[in-house]
């Protein structure tokens, strides 16, 4: 049962990490243009020299 002492915090920590990532994406306005973001990856405009 000692394993629980490690596993529960680990699972909570991983879940929390996911939550933080979601909040970060939400704050970064990454849900503003889902259609456009899906298409942008197809453009080769910034492939060789990343957008400054």
């Amino acid at each position: 049962m000692q394993i629980l002492g490690i596993l529960i915090p680990v699972s909570l920590g991983l879940g929390g990490l996911g939550l933080l990532a979601f909040i970060w994406a939400l704050r970064g306005r990454q849900y503003e243009d889902p259609k456009g973001d899906a298409r942008r990856i197809l453009s080769s405009e910034w492939d060789d020299h990343p957008k400054p």
Partner: peptide
């Protein structure tokens, strides 16, 4: 489409006086 986004942003960014142009395809 993807090409439309790049075309519009490129032509606007090249225009003198434009600092930044960003297309929102959803809207």
């Amino acid at each position: 489409c993807a090409t439309c986004i790049t075309d519009v942003e490129r032509v606007l960014n090249r225009h003198p006086g434009v600092r930044e142009a960003r297309v929102n395809l959803t809207l």
